[in-house]
């Protein structure tokens, strides 16, 4: 890796590869919180980014999108620099990252997903309004279209964010803890939507905390703790040994045993 990641830019030009991150290093202060991470996210895959609190999962997503500046690293999206491919990406930030007292209704937030279509002054057409409602229906929130966003429960807020991402009609979905603080029914609804997206040949990358559902929901994992620990298909990469390496002593052996993973490992 060169410090500015320029060598990496030459490598990833595959237009079929939704997302490749190379040599990503991010620091808020002196110490890097993401260090030299390389990762590739193949088409039509569903990848869980897994790691302990403060491992840099959110930061990796944000740096990938340019939301926080990176010290080094390059990103290619469908073989292009991200600036040229933003219309193909949908991003669902951590729900707690915004102020839900903002004066807006549910449908206003979902309409933000149409920004690239509408531009500065475009008006929402009848067809687009129907699309917005359809996105809300997909997350079972159609009845809440006119509701003020401050009056939603956490799980409802999460679904509004997902509906906004659906309205973006992207090919690559980056989600930051879409299941945080939602009940089992909502989790089911969200995972169904994500699996539906995958069936539509879209690619999903999601920060995920619940180790017990990883094998169920995701076909790939990226284990992260500042550095990349491992990356690959869930079956071969989501192993007890890799989890130990990722969580260190913070995860008791019994917890890992409960996952019923093969101990062969990487």
């Amino acid at each position: 890796m060169t410090p500015d990641g320029s060598a990496a830019k030459v490598v990833e030009e595959d237009p079929g590869l939704p997302l490749a991150v190379r040599g990503m290093t991010v620091a808020y202060g002196e110490k890097p919180v993401v260090f030299s991470v390389d990762a590739r996210f193949p088409a039509q895959s569903m990848t869980a980014i897994i790691g302990p609190n403060g491992a840099g999962k959110s930061t990796l997503l944000k740096a990938t999108l340019g939301v926080v500046p990176s010290l080094s690293g390059s990103v290619s999206v469908y073989g292009q620099p991200i600036a040229k491919a933003r219309h193909r990406i949908a991003y669902v930030p951590q729900r707690a990252s915004v102020d839900w007292d903002f004066p807006a209704r549910v449908v206003d937030v979902v309409a933000m997903g149409l920004y690239r279509e509408l531009g500065l002054l475009g008006m929402v057409s009848r067809k687009q309004r129907a699309t917005l409602m359809h996105c809300l229906e997909r997350v079972n929130m159609a009845d809440f279209a006119g509701r003020q966003i401050g009056q939603l429960s956490g799980g409802q807020q999460q679904r509004v964010f997902l509906a906004r991402a659906l309205a973006q009609n992207a090919d690559l979905y980056l989600l930051d803890e879409p299941f945080a603080g939602v009940d089992a029914a909502t989790e089911r609804a969200i995972i169904d939507v994500l699996k539906g997206l995958k069936a539509e040949r879209r690619t999903i990358v999601s920060v995920h905390h619940d180790l017990s559902t990883v094998t169920d929901y995701f076909d790939r994992v990226l284990l992260l703790n500042i550095r990349k620990i491992a990356e690959g298909p869930t079956a071969t990469t989501f192993t007890a040994a890799n989890l130990q390496a990722t969580y260190g002593g913070r995860l008791a052996a019994t917890q890992i045993n409960d996952l019923g993973l093969a101990h062969a490992g990487a």
Binding site: K62, L65, G66, R86, I89, Y91, A104
Partner: peptide, 9 residues
């Protein structure tokens, strides 16, 4: 409302 999302789009 959402600076991260805004940057992303």
């Amino acid at each position: 409302f959402d600076e991260g999302f805004a940057t992303a789009v």
